[in-house]
Design a protein around this nucleic acid. Structure first.
Length: 271
DNA sequence: AAAAGCCCCTGGATGC
DNA sequence: TGCATCCAGGGGCTTT
């Protein structure tokens, strides 16, 4: 589920409430994707200074060290005034003076990892290879085009790989490629400079729009107060196989790329 | 170095 | 109703 917009919506819901909160306890449930890398008890007494985002990771700066959170495919974070009884899929609780932050993750592809610093090997193993932030100024059309020229893989899979630009998952990759009129199977190196610029703009547009309306709530995702997002209501191609394109009426197609579904309009995205 | 495949795990939808 | 099969938004790791 959670791609950049959902993680950013989560961050926006946490940063205000949690800044300055002191950790009073941490509770582990079933194992997540990676171990916490510290004793939960050792977090007690630390203060949350900030909540940042890098790609699809949330970075929680503590008075000493930081926590890296990842929501995997089905995770969501919710802030409760007091700690509710843990349910079947509640696998990590962080009790603070400002409430109980709870990770619910049915599939357990998510994780919470402690690292002593962002520059530490523990953190860099997860963050070190990440590409540019799509909504920051370092992400520019010209540099994007240069990066595309060096890769022969299909553009959809390059977007998902996250080593050129981060945060674009399956939904937003499909949607951005539709907006740019680019066939998802097109080799990245064959994308011209103007079309790369169009894709650059489409990525920014689709991600910004999704953040503004609370992300996409398919299956599990909700915001930190349990609220739904609405982007799934305005997708042009994602999960619309067999339905008419909203622009031209042609039937939307689905195909598999890298073991994932790709949706596209064969007319609007001719290559 | 880059690309392609393989999994981790669970639940919901679909089909027989 | 019951059971099997397929599918799902991620991404690190291994193999080619």
């Amino acid at each position: 589920m959670p791609e950049l917009p959902e993680v950013e919506v989560t961050r926006l819901g946490l940063v205000g409430p949690l800044q300055g909160a002191r950790i009073e306890a941490a509770y582990l449930g079933k194992p997540l994707r990676w171990p916490l890398q510290c004793l939960p008890q050792s977090l007690v007494g630390r203060t949350i200074l900030d909540v940042r985002r890098r790609g699809k990771y949330l970075l929680m700066d503590l008075s000493e060290g930081l926590l890296l959170w990842h929501l995997g495919m089905s995770g969501s974070l919710r802030l409760w005034p007091t700690r509710p009884d843990p349910g079947l899929h509640d696998h990590f609780d962080l009790m603070t003076t400002h409430g109980c932050l709870r990770l619910n993750d049915p599939r357990r592809f998510g994780a919470v990892v402690y690292a002593p610093a962002e520059s530490s090997p523990q953190a860099q193993q997860l963050l070190g290879h990440l590409g540019l932030e799509p909504l920051q100024s370092a992400f520019q059309p010209q540099g994007f085009h240069q990066a595309l020229r060096q890769r022969r893989t299909a553009i959809k899979q390059l977007l998902l790989a996250g080593d050129v630009v981060v945060g674009v998952g399956n939904i937003y990759a499909c949607e951005a490629l539709f907006l740019a009129g680019i066939r998802p199977t097109l080799s990245a190196q064959r994308i011209s400079r103007p079309r790369a610029a169009a894709l650059h703009a489409a990525i920014q547009q689709v991600l910004s729009r999704a953040i503004a309306i609370g992300g996409s709530s398919l299956r599990d995702f909700t915001g930190t107060e349990g609220q739904s997002g609405y982007f799934q209501l305005e997708t042009k191609v994602y999960d619309r196989e067999g339905q008419p394109c909203r622009e031209c009426g042609t039937t939307i197609r689905r195909r598999v790329q890298g073991q994932r579904s790709t949706f596209y309009c064969p007319q609007c995205q001719r290559n």
